[in-house]
Computed example of a mutant assay.
Amino acid sequence: MRNISDVIEQYLKSMLLESPEGAVEIQRNDLADQFSCVPSQINYVISTRFTLEKGYLVQSKRGGGGYIRIQRIELPQHLALHAHLSGTIGDKIDQNTAEGLIYQLEEARFLSKREACLMRAAVSRESLAVKLPYRDEIRAKLMKAMLISLMSK
Rank of each mutant, 00 (worst) to 15 (best):
K141L: 11
A116T: 10
R72M: 13
K92Q: 13
L142C: 07
E99R: 12
A121N: 05
I93C: 05
H82K: 13
R109W: 00
I148K: 08
E126C: 00
T88M: 12
R109N: 11
A140I: 05
K131G: 04
T51W: 10
K13L: 15
K92H: 07
R125A: 13
A23R: 15
N3T: 09
Q71L: 11
F50Q: 09
I93W: 02
G87P: 04
I148L: 12
D91A: 09
F35M: 00
E21Q: 14
E107H: 12
Q104L: 08
V123Q: 01
I89G: 02
R72F: 10
E126H: 08
I148H: 08
A32K: 05
M143G: 05
Q95S: 07
G64A: 10
L118I: 06
M143R: 04
V123A: 01
L79G: 13
A23C: 11
G66F: 11
P39S: 01
A121P: 00
S86D: 13
L105I: 03
T97Q: 13
Q10S: 13
K131M: 01
E126D: 11
D94Q: 01
L150M: 06
E137D: 00
L17C: 01
S86H: 15
G64F: 05
M143V: 03
G22V: 06
A80E: 15
E107G: 10
Q59A: 07
D33H: 10
V7Y: 00
E99L: 10
Q104T: 03
L52N: 09
Q34L: 09
L52S: 13
R139C: 00
Q34N: 02
S124I: 01
A145E: 03
M151G: 15
G90L: 12
N96Y: 11
Y56E: 03
G87Q: 10
E18Q: 15
P133D: 01
I73A: 01
G22T: 09
T97L: 12
M1C: 07
K92R: 14
D94T: 02
I26W: 09
R49Y: 05
L31H: 06
